[in-house]
Computed example of a mutant assay.
Amino acid sequence: MMEYRIGRSRKQQEEQAVKEATEGLVNPKLILFFSEADNFTKYTVDMKNLFPDSLIIGSTTFVGLCKEGAYKDTLIVLGIEEGIECYGDVLEEVDRYPLKYIDRIENCVKQFKNTQNTICFEVSSALISSEELILSTFSSVLVDKGIPLFGGSAGDRGNAEKTMISFNGKVMEKACAFVILKNLGGGIKLYRENIYRPTKWHFTATKVDIRNRIVYEYNDQPAAQVMAKALNTDIKNLPSYLDSYPLGRLIGNEMYITANQGITDHNGMAYHARVYNNSHMVLLEPDDYKEVLRRTREQVKRDIPNPSLTIMIHCLARSILFEKDGYLNDFAKEMGNTLGNYIGFAGYGEQLNQQHFNQTMVLAVFE
């Protein structure tokens, strides 16, 4: 049986906020916490001082989510005391050479007698285009062991200023903190939801800068021109469409959302996830997101009628959209009606197994 507590606090004094948000925790094996950037460093230090023997991972976020609602400028904490086995560490230099730290992943995996019902959760620094390098490093170890991965890039207030993560009392800006955890009471099921649908416009990336996430040409034509034509506009007015019309990267029968970042020199298009040469892309348009969410909740309810716990990664862009529509708080509560107790954060990207993508919700639901 999983024993845990989810708490939160808006107290201005950081030490008091940590005590309020962790009230009732005695000796947690694992703590996950999310907050705004302003107080994040102090939360990190105070949390480790209060629970020196716990494995503690934190991330900055646009908003904290739980069954009671959506909370900004709030410390939100999950502490798990029983029902899991877990080991964690951190990858450093993720913008250049995370592979140098692959032994830290291997050492965590070796601690388990078996990896049944085991999953890897990670949070990474955002805005440095490091996610694909990080996933490649994890895949080198986890794929052979059959351990799924899910996680997200850190968030901020939505102004792309600064994101941070922390591991066991230390704040980091170019790193990835991770925990490999085993559910001792059952399985763990992963869900990926997008609220966009394909249009008739399909493209092939024919000239790309993979590392900098730029596509210069689709179908051998300037990428921005191709996009503008598909949206029945011109390049001057194209930026006003970019938030609502992302692209989908097609891999077999799967589609992963790639968010637009902007127009570059020479009418290229910059993105928030990598597009590879010869990638097959489809222009997306908004779907009825409340209907999509209803179907997701129904699917989870059929699969796992009474979840023990859920961890949610909810894209910052989705959170901003829901907030603009006055729906963000209701969304959080409605998800709670299906998931029960859950904790979520919103950042600049989502990861599932070997893929990094955007504008998506990822759920890890524990039986």
Rank of each mutant, 00 (worst) to 15 (best):
V94N: 02
M227D: 01
R318A: 01
L184E: 12
V141C: 11
M164F: 15
Q111F: 09
E193T: 10
I102Q: 11
L316V: 00
D156K: 07
Y196H: 13
G347M: 00
N353W: 08
S124E: 14
Y87R: 05
K324W: 07
N117V: 03
I6E: 08
N117G: 09
R213M: 08
V18T: 02
K189D: 13
P239W: 12
Q355S: 14
V90N: 01
E36S: 15
A70C: 13
I57G: 04
A332P: 02
N107W: 06
D288Y: 10
I56P: 09
Y87H: 07
F121R: 03
Y97A: 10
I76D: 01
Y216K: 03
Q225E: 13
N278R: 09
Q299D: 05
C315P: 10
C108Y: 09
E68R: 12
S130W: 10
N278A: 07
A126Y: 11
R295D: 06
M172R: 13
I195R: 11
N260F: 04
L127K: 12
K189C: 09
K207L: 10
S35H: 06
T338A: 15
A317T: 13
E23P: 03
H272N: 02
L127V: 09
R211S: 02
R192S: 13
M1T: 06
K333V: 15
Y342G: 03
M2I: 03
L309H: 06
M164D: 10
M269E: 07
L190P: 05
S153R: 07
N107V: 06
R211Y: 11
N27F: 11
E85I: 14
F33L: 04
T44L: 05
N306M: 12
T44G: 05
Y101R: 06
G146S: 12
Y256C: 07
M312P: 05
R104E: 04
R249S: 14
N212L: 05
D38N: 08
S9Y: 13
P28H: 02
T74V: 08
A160R: 07
D156T: 09
E173I: 12
C108K: 06
I128V: 13
I76M: 06
Y191L: 12
C315Y: 07
R10M: 14
S130I: 01
F203S: 03
F33Q: 00
E3M: 01
E15P: 00
G152W: 02
K333S: 10
R318N: 06
R157E: 11
L75I: 14
N27Q: 15
G64E: 11
L127R: 13
L55F: 06
L91E: 00
K229V: 08
M255K: 12
V292F: 08
H314E: 04
L50K: 15
Q225T: 10
S244L: 12
E15K: 14
